[in-house]
Design a protein around this nucleic acid. Structure first.
Lengths: 337, 337
DNA sequence: GCTAAACTTGAAATCGATTTCAATCATACT
DNA sequence: AGTATGATTGAAATCGATTTCAAGTTTAGC
């Protein structure tokens, strides 16, 4: 059913019907009510593509998805969806071919220039991330989930990664640990750098220097947690505590500790960052896992909100949110023997 | 840059330019090459919304996303993306408000009637799923990831859940187990029903009857695995083996077994279905987990392909794929003591 | 009763592409 | 040379909405 046809059935002009449905004020209440109820009854719904062409709005926010299994992705997007379901805005997932930076840049360019999306959300930036300059020059509103250090203006929402690791490391120091290892996230990502800073800072505050051999970068997975923890614990001067990048990493760390006949918490303390996944909870691990916690889903919801504000015209340089993380102490951290 | 403007710069009509870019045969090779290279140089790209309006194609496939944390979601979508990145087709994520069936039906209706998508993919159907009749009556191509039993025609791709559980249960019988418990997926979903059938069938083939008290339905999570396994193992007549719904569930099952001072494999055998997640591998668990395996990512890629075929006009009733699953025996299954 | 102001409504232009139909040009054949 | 054929190109209609501008209708004020 098209507007023309629908309007004719109502004995009104397309103009009036369009105005009635879009909530313009110059339509009488009586007409508006009639149009609304008839639209419902007859099932008329504007062709979104015609609307988009005419208004220039795409009605969608683009989210770039890397190729690797992104453990955070579902939660984040699900959080976004929660905010967007009342906003008549869709989420567009775009695969990143990205065998190199140029490919990725091209993917963004295509997305924006073909007017598929009104705004873009980007994850896990690096300090000097070329995507930011690119999106800036394309003139499309965008939000960074995470942070960057480029001089280019960008709206961002990030969690306090530095503070998180500083506090968890500090907690381990408080318990009496002196040799602490960290299994960080992907090398080069800003969040990994911030976490490393937090790690170093906590050491400095105690007059210590973080040992580069006690820090490693890798993806978040059970397997990498296991491998690196094992490597740390088999050394001559093994750490008595490990800071893990995610609960998934912590699973592997637990496994490594057990495989050496040791006990988590008693022989080796473990603390991790928890993004709060419904299918794996730190509290239920054995022993329960001490964590710094921040909800990925909540971040998704808020990022959607901020992106809507960007689209509505709010200035990017006034959108900066740094979320604190909670420190939750459980059984996996204790004084060294 | 619009078509008009771009065509003028080339000294051609919009018609010819459009045809050159869309690959129509009636354009000379020389012209086509010039148009293509100039489009690249000047950065002309058709406004996707105008194209969509004119052609009636939305250039997107809709994927419904439930509210709960969908552990499979990212992998599946990532698999889809792999196929779609060369197809100029986007993935549209639509949140399901769904406090009830009607809400959900309305969400689909909105999506389809506003012409946002050319086709829809649906997950985890129930045997009599009202969404199938609804999508049929809306006349939109759709693919079911999973299966249903309605008489309404529907294209589907599913894994052999019945066969998977039948084989894993059979394997446990072969090892000498006689009391086997199963932690199944969500009640009412077709895949859970099929798995239960597989479980019963394996029993029947041995002249046994599956004990209803040894079967439970729940979501896939570490926590539910733990809770149900514990409940099973603390009974008077405890099972000597457990069939788990997912690797995540198996994590919880392992934990429960350990918490009772028992050893996985030796005291209690465990086998699970593995959808292959990059961040948690069955092989790396301790002891390594026996599984039936099927790649969620591969399913996503294939579903995307089949959906493109549906859009291209292939009949829904000739698209039925039942994927076999691999049985991979590792250390978590052994003869009972 | 007349005019101004405030409400409502509609006609037509517009968004930026695709595609039908017609026209032109070059080539081949008798 | 003249015509039929095939290969290229372009003008204009079209997709289905929104929105500008103009016009018609009430209401209010004096």
């Amino acid at each position: 059913m098209k507007l023309r046809e629908f309007a004719k059935q109502l004995g009104l002009s397309p103009t009036t019907v369009s105005r009635a449905l879009s909530g313009y004020p110059e339509v009488s209440e009586a007409t508006r009510a009639r149009v609304a109820s008839e639209a419902m009854r007859l099932g008329y719904r504007p062709d979104i593509n015609a609307v988009r062409l005419k208004t220039g709005r795409a009605g969608a926010i683009g989210v770039m998805m890397g190729r690797s299994g992104e453990i955070h992705f579902a939660e984040f997007v699900s959080g976004m969806a929660q905010r967007l379901e009342t906003a008549d805005t869709d989420i567009l997932i775009t695969p990143i071919t990205a065998h190199n930076d140029d490919d990725e840049i091209q993917a963004y360019r295509r997305l924006v220039e073909s007017r598929r999306v009104d705004a873009v959300i980007i994850h896990s930036p690096r300090p000097q991330d070329p995507r930011i300059e690119m999106l800036n020059s394309l003139g499309v509103p965008f939000l960074i989930h995470g942070r960057s250090e480029t001089e280019h203006v960008h709206a961002w929402l990030d969690i306090d990664n530095e503070g998180a690791v500083r506090r968890s490391t500090d907690h381990l120091f408080d318990l009496g640990h002196r040799r602490i290892a960290m299994i960080n996230g992907l090398r080069g990502k800003t969040y990994s750098i911030h976490r490393e800073q937090g790690f170093r800072l906590a050491h400095q505050e105690r007059g210590l220097t973080a040992d580069p051999n006690m820090m490693v970068c890798d993806k978040f997975s059970d397997e990498s947690g296991f491998r690196h923890a094992l490597s740390f614990l088999e050394r001559a001067n093994a750490p008595t505590a490990i800071v893990a990048g995610s609960t998934m990493t912590a699973l592997g760390v637990y496994r490594a500790i057990r495989s050496l006949g040791m006990t988590v918490g008693r022989d080796v303390s473990v603390i991790a960052h928890d993004d709060v996944f419904p299918y794996l909870t730190a509290e239920n691990m054995v022993p329960s896992l001490s964590t710094t916690r921040s909800s990925m889903r909540a971040a998704g919801t808020r990022c959607a909100e901020l992106t809507l504000q960007l689209i509505a015209g709010r200035a990017a340089d006034e959108i900066h949110e740094l979320w604190p993380v909670e420190l939750i102490l459980r059984e996996s951290t204790a004084a060294p023997r």
